[in-house]
Amino acid sequence: MAAPALTTSKYAPYWQAAPIALIFAAFFLIPLAATVVVSFWEYTEYSIEPAFVSQNYLDVFDGCFADLPNLCVTFKTYLSTLKFCLIVWAITLVVGFTTSYFLAFHIKSLTVQMALFMVCTIPFWTSNVIRMISWIPLLGRNGLLNDFLLSTGLVTERQDWFLYSDFSVGLAFVHLFTPFMAVPIFNSMMRIDKALVEAAYDGGASTWQTLWNVIIPLCKPGIAIGSIFVITIVMGDYITIGVMGGQQIASIGKVIQVQMNYLQFPIAAANAVVLLILVLMIIFAMTKLVDIRKEL
């Protein structure tokens, strides 16, 4: 951004950036450091003591490697969370891409385009918990879905597995987080020079060929950003899994939350550090695949 100086002082950017830097330092960087430090502390039922022990990390993976053909609780939890991640990522990608594609390439009027885009993003500004609760009258035992299936004769008795199950958790994830995928993809698509698409068609490419060879490659940064959002949110989630899983389904986030509620901070911190490393590894892998900086 080659902009002229707002003020003549060369120190201006420093005091202008100071508030945001201080807030990130105080409420993001130091807390992360505190988490790493506390993950090496000792704790008993009654107290937490500064120390430097690896016991918490050993406890996180207690017996995990010894029993390896069989999965320990920790591995099972991680596997379950990763499973949700993969499924939700795939669905949000398909849904987010398809809706964005329709908006970006099939709607000609910019006004209509922006209006429909707003329609898709407004739910982002409303409460997640309420959007979860709102599935209850639809999926519950006496919910609309059961009523509908009974009346059509597709099922003979009311189904219990629509709500408080893996199904409802996955559904809520897709419901809540598709905008995180759709918005960056839409943003990428709007930057594509329409002449490129024209050229592909003029050169005799079919719709699919154009999609696969022109549009998708140019959307990669948007897809990567959306994927990072969705994956990191699902990896650390404990609220959606809690509410929509009827507090019965495990996730890494939930393990951390439960440990915090029992004031077992050092092991919660160790779990948080492991989660953070895993998430950073996933993001690192994705940035190796796609250069995201082009998009920012």
């Binding site: 650390g236 951390i256 919660a268 911190a269 989660l275």
Partner: peptide, 12 residues
Amino acid sequence: VPSIVVSLGIGL
């Protein structure tokens, strides 16, 4: 960064 990690960190 997962929100639960930020939240735990600030709490600590």
